[in-house]
Simulated scan of single mutants.
Amino acid sequence: MNNIDMKNLGLTEEFKQESKIYKDLFIGRVSSQSKNLYKVITEKGEIVAEISGKYHYNVKGISEYPAVGDFVMVDRTNNSQGNGIIHRILSRKSVFAREMAGTKEEIQIVATNIDTVFICMSLNNDYNLRRLERYLSIAWDSGAVPVIVLTKSDLCKDIEIRLNEITSIAIGVEVLVTTSTSDEGSRSLKRFLSSGKTAAFIGSSGVGKSTLINCLLGQNILDTNGIRNDDKGRHTTTRRELFILPHLGVVIDTPGMRELGIINADLTKSFSDIEELAFDCKFNDCTHKNEPNCAVQKAIKDGVISVERLESYWKLEKEAKYDGLNSKMIEKEKISDMFGSMGDKKNFRKFIKEQNRKTRR
Rank of each mutant, 00 (worst) to 15 (best):
R360I: 13
L163A: 07
V304I: 12
R240V: 10
T116D: 04
T236D: 11
K315E: 10
D344L: 07
D323M: 01
I274H: 07
K328L: 14
T179I: 11
G208K: 12
W140G: 01
A49G: 08
F192N: 11
A97D: 03
D158M: 03
V173F: 13
L37R: 08
G102A: 03
Y313H: 12
I252G: 09
S182M: 05
I47F: 00
V147D: 05
P246Q: 15
K321Q: 12
E43D: 10
E165N: 14
D230G: 09
S19N: 07
K315I: 01
S52T: 15
I89N: 15
M1P: 06
S80E: 15
R191L: 04
F192P: 07
S195T: 05
N3L: 14
D253I: 06
S312P: 04
G84C: 09
A199R: 08
F26V: 10
G53C: 03
A67T: 09
R349F: 14
S19T: 03
V30Y: 15
Q219A: 09
I166Y: 00
A67H: 02
L267H: 01
R29V: 15
E333P: 06
V251G: 00
K93A: 01
E184R: 06
I119S: 08
R162W: 05
L245N: 10
R134E: 04
V48E: 13
G256C: 05
L155E: 05
I262S: 05
I244R: 04
F339D: 01
A111C: 02
L260E: 07
P292M: 06
E317G: 12
A320P: 09
I138W: 01
S194W: 04
I159M: 02
F271L: 06
A144L: 12
E43C: 12
Q219P: 00
S270C: 02
I335F: 02
T179E: 10
A139E: 08
E105A: 15
S204Q: 14
V296M: 03
R29C: 05
I330R: 14
N125A: 03
S63G: 08
G102F: 05
R228P: 05
D126R: 09
T287K: 15
R187N: 15
L193Q: 07
W140L: 03
L132T: 09
I85E: 04
A200S: 06
R162T: 00
N128K: 11
I86C: 02
I107E: 14
Y322H: 06
V145L: 02
N356G: 09
Q17R: 12
Y57D: 07
N79L: 12
G196M: 04
V207H: 10
I159V: 14
